[in-house]
């Protein structure tokens, strides 16, 4: 997750201090990836080090508003203009579990699939409920949609596993 570019994107519409950035980041992504204020300040100081943002004077409450620099705008444009690489996903526990259940022949594979499918469907139901409740704009709903599509892909894969294993048994 690129907090760095997320913060740059928010700053591109105007100067903000750390707390505002945190609130707006969470509002855009529907609090899917909660951000602690420490992460925000660490990221801001790295952005400052790299010349992508500039701090202003601190106000009477000691808050410092940051402004995006020309280099920062360039970096942001580069980020939006570059597709994300389908990077190596971290090892997926479910895939390993299923592969082992099949290869080692120790577990009841059908039971592993049934249990997982029910659990994944419950997760999908919760996501759908969250989506119905999300009325604060498209950004939030699209973040939830992304997770819905991923859960759906897992569900389809489980159906596929079941069909393939049934055929081979």
């Amino acid at each position: 997750m690129s907090i760095r570019h997320g913060l740059l994107a928010l700053l591109s519409t105007g100067s903000r201090h750390g707390y505002q950035l945190r609130v707006e980041f969470e509002a855009s992504t529907g609090a899917t990836w909660p951000l602690n204020i420490g992460q925000v300040y660490t990221t801001l100081s790295r952005l400052e080090r790299d010349g992508l943002v500039e701090p202003g004077e601190s106000d009477e409450q000691g808050r410092v508003a940051y402004t995006i620099t020309a280099a920062g705008r360039e970096e942001l444009a580069r980020w939006f203009g570059t597709p994300v690489v389908q990077s190596d996903r971290p090892r997926d526990e479910l895939v390993i579990k299923l592969a082992m259940a099949v290869a080692a022949g120790r577990a009841d594979v059908a039971e592993v699939i049934h249990k997982q499918r029910t659990a994944t469907m419950r997760a999908l139901q919760r996501l759908t409920t969250a989506k119905r409740a999300a009325t604060d704009g498209a950004a939030q709903r699209l973040v939830i949609d992304s997770m819905i599509f991923q859960a759906e892909a897992e569900q389809r894969w489980l159906d596929h596993c079941e069909a393939v294993l049934k055929e081979e048994s």
Binding site: H114, L124, Q125, T128, T129, I148
Partner: peptide, 30 residues
């Protein structure tokens, strides 16, 4: 399609003419 089934209070999975699994606790929040 799982994404549409997820709008339901309860999802029933049929296999070979029998109910194989069900997400049988209705979601109160749904």
């Amino acid at each position: 399609e799982p994404r549409y089934a997820a709008w339901a209070d309860r999802v029933v999975f049929l296999r070979d003419g029998m109910i194989a699994d069900t997400t049988d606790t209705p979601l109160a929040s749904a």
